[in-house]
Amino acid sequence: MNPKDLKDILLALEMADVREFSLKTAEYDLNIKRGAEAPVYVQAPIQPVQAQPVQTSGQTQPAPAQATAQAAQAQPPVTEAAAPATPVPTPGTPVKAPIVGTFYTSSSPDAPVYVKVGDTVVAGQILCIIEAMKLMNEIEAETAGTLREILVKNGEPVEYGQTLFIIE
């Protein structure tokens, strides 16, 4: 593999925000991992601060009750964060991206789209194009049915295995 090919692969992976990539051929075995996994943030409950008596020149002076009340009011209320709702899967057969690249709904900007929601598709019909490293890859329907959902917008990057369409 020449350096230009490797640079093109790295650029395509970065544009698609792919974190891990493997490619195995008869000549080489390439494994790429970018960055660390995203950190998980956990918010700890905020504990109100209690005013402590201040000791000056051997004498203890109590903190004013008013300052303690203001400090308690200044603390935001601690609420439990609701767990994110899991999306309800759409019934039907998913059409997944076989490669990483850019999703296109038509062969050119001025051409009509291949399919729209509600269209009846047959096995082998072209649904979209995924551009990967300046190569246009036609993605075909594996099953016949009615197109129920298009999950990607024109021009968006897609990852390997990402669901593109739902055919019912």
Score class of each variant (00 low, 15 high):
87 P>K: 08
104 Y>N: 00
48 P>D: 09
64 P>R: 11
102 T>R: 07
121 V>M: 12
14 E>V: 11
153 K>Q: 11
43 Q>D: 07
130 I>A: 07
85 A>Q: 13
143 T>G: 06
139 I>A: 03
33 K>N: 03
127 L>W: 04
73 Q>V: 04
130 I>K: 07
23 L>Q: 12
45 P>G: 10
61 Q>C: 13
92 G>L: 04
97 A>V: 07
73 Q>E: 12
5 D>E: 12
9 I>R: 06
95 V>H: 06
165 F>T: 10
119 D>I: 05
116 K>I: 09
120 T>W: 01
155 G>V: 02
1 M>C: 06
115 V>E: 14
128 C>K: 08
163 T>N: 05
66 Q>R: 15
83 A>H: 01
69 A>L: 03
62 P>D: 12
29 D>L: 10
22 S>Y: 05
39 P>Y: 12
97 A>T: 06
23 L>N: 01
20 E>T: 14
67 A>W: 02
150 I>D: 08
124 G>A: 14
141 A>V: 10
104 Y>P: 07
31 N>E: 01
132 A>E: 00
42 V>E: 12
35 G>S: 07
64 P>N: 15
47 Q>N: 08
67 A>N: 11
128 C>P: 04
14 E>G: 12
107 S>H: 06
78 V>K: 09
45 P>E: 13
88 V>M: 12
88 V>Y: 11
114 Y>V: 04
6 L>H: 03
124 G>P: 14
158 V>Y: 02
46 I>T: 11
98 P>G: 08
78 V>T: 12
147 L>E: 02
155 G>Y: 06
149 E>N: 14
3 P>S: 15
63 A>W: 03
49 V>N: 02
76 P>V: 15
48 P>I: 10
18 V>E: 15
62 P>Q: 00
129 I>G: 13
48 P>V: 15
68 T>V: 08
148 R>F: 08
69 A>Y: 06
107 S>R: 08
111 A>H: 02
73 Q>S: 06
74 A>E: 06
165 F>P: 07
103 F>I: 04
147 L>Q: 06
149 E>I: 13
115 V>S: 08
106 S>K: 02
93 T>H: 00
8 D>F: 00
41 Y>H: 00
125 Q>K: 13
34 R>H: 03
31 N>C: 11
107 S>L: 07
163 T>K: 01
34 R>W: 09
26 A>K: 10
104 Y>R: 09
71 A>S: 04
129 I>D: 02
117 V>N: 14
123 A>G: 03
60 T>K: 13
11 L>V: 09
160 Y>V: 11
165 F>Y: 01
